[in-house]
Design a protein around this nucleic acid. Structure first.
Lengths: 203, 203
DNA sequence: TCTATTACCGAACACTCTGTGCTAGATTGC
DNA sequence: GCAATCTAGCACAGAGTGTTCGGTAATAGA
């Protein structure tokens, strides 16, 4: 993307900083990591750090660029379930995700992730529903899908000793969310028979 | 609870600190509030603060005690939907909740809230399902219900200009989650007719 | 009302971290 | 090889944290 034409020293420095951040996160969790930690670990001068990044968060975003592009790609691929792609990402580097989202996780990061996922799911749901006016505001559905994805995916799934495979997880996710989303997406149709009791009419 | 037998000065100080924290949160968001802010606002000595609370977060928890007891009560009342109670709480002080959970919100706090809600929902689901072995691990369902409650309730609902009433919100919540929960709770029964496509042979 | 107890104040202190500025020296691209 | 660019290292001001301590008030209880 832009990684080619840079001075070798710059590539080196940024690379060092990125891995130092990652290592530090794994060790103590993002929130507790300080710029000091990072530059010590990377063995890079203080001023050098600030020559490249505004602060810790800036560096984080830089390190997460590939993630965003991966998600964007997933959103544009209409073929397969975008959530499976997400779960695969989670699974592939679960230690990192655990450190980022779990107990010692990072608020900043979760917020960032949340935004990525809402963007992803919004565009997915939008193509799915077309122009129809949905029974429930689309944004609510997006929020529903996204928070479940993070909650279930990170706060539950990855905390397990022996997590399900991404595919199974995706299946589980859909089993839980699909009915609700379907109900919400459906245009203004027959009497809903509300929620609590009957609940029968899936399709 | 324990508020009776305390020295009047102690009550005063803690009260001042609690409201100072609240005010500061409303103004700049929890994360940006410093101990300095709090004691300035409360006009209380620095050492006094630390005589009562370990840090900012400790004070927050103290200020949230009533919330916990309210939720505990809701959990023990088998009559009505516990989530409605929660939504009513949210609605009653939406400015605060917005400040705590919204844009400038606090992930520390969300984490805390998340725990409260998982406890609440776990006990609710548990009584509901009894001894049956559920199709989906109960913890996953709890997580599903809780993250949806926070996401939908705080990140979407309260951010609206003219939010639905708590009752409507509760209905919406159930419309989205009930089908999934039902599917997950159901013991190992007949062919599910699953979710997305066939997804058949689960186990 | 008196008194022993308890809580508060304020200021100082050591500490950690942040972000900026500057110069001398090393590496790089060409 | 040489000019351009990057890095190291250090010093600095500023903000915040959490602790300590002696003096001063307010309180509870008799």
């Amino acid at each position: 993307m832009e990684a080619e034409k840079l001075d070798r020293r710059v590539r080196r420095t940024r690379g060092l900083l990125r891995s130092a951040l990652l290592a530090a996160i794994l060790e103590k969790g993002y929130e507790r990591v300080t710029v000091q930690d990072i530059i010590d670990r990377a063995d890079v001068g203080r001023s050098t750090f600030y020559a490249h990044f505004r602060d810790k968060e800036d560096l984080l975003h830089y390190g997460l660029e590939e993630l965003r592009t991966a998600f964007d790609a997933a959103a544009k691929d209409p073929g397969r379930s975008p959530t499976l792609k997400v779960f695969e990402h989670f699974y592939a580097s679960r230690e990192v995700w655990r450190a980022m989202v779990g107990r010692r996780g990072s608020e900043t990061f979760i917020r960032y992730l949340h935004r990525l996922l809402t963007d992803l799911l919004r565009s997915h749901l939008q193509t799915r529903v077309g122009q129809e006016e949905t029974r429930v505001p689309l944004e609510a559905l997006v929020e529903f899908a996204a928070s479940t994805l993070i909650g279930l995916g990170n706060r539950w799934w990855l905390e397990q000793d022996k997590p399900l495979s991404p595919r199974e997880m995706d299946k589980l996710y859909h089993r839980l969310t699909e009915p609700g989303i379907r109900a919400g997406l459906r245009p203004k149709a027959a009497a809903p028979a509300a929620a609590a009791s009957p609940a029968s009419p899936t399709d």
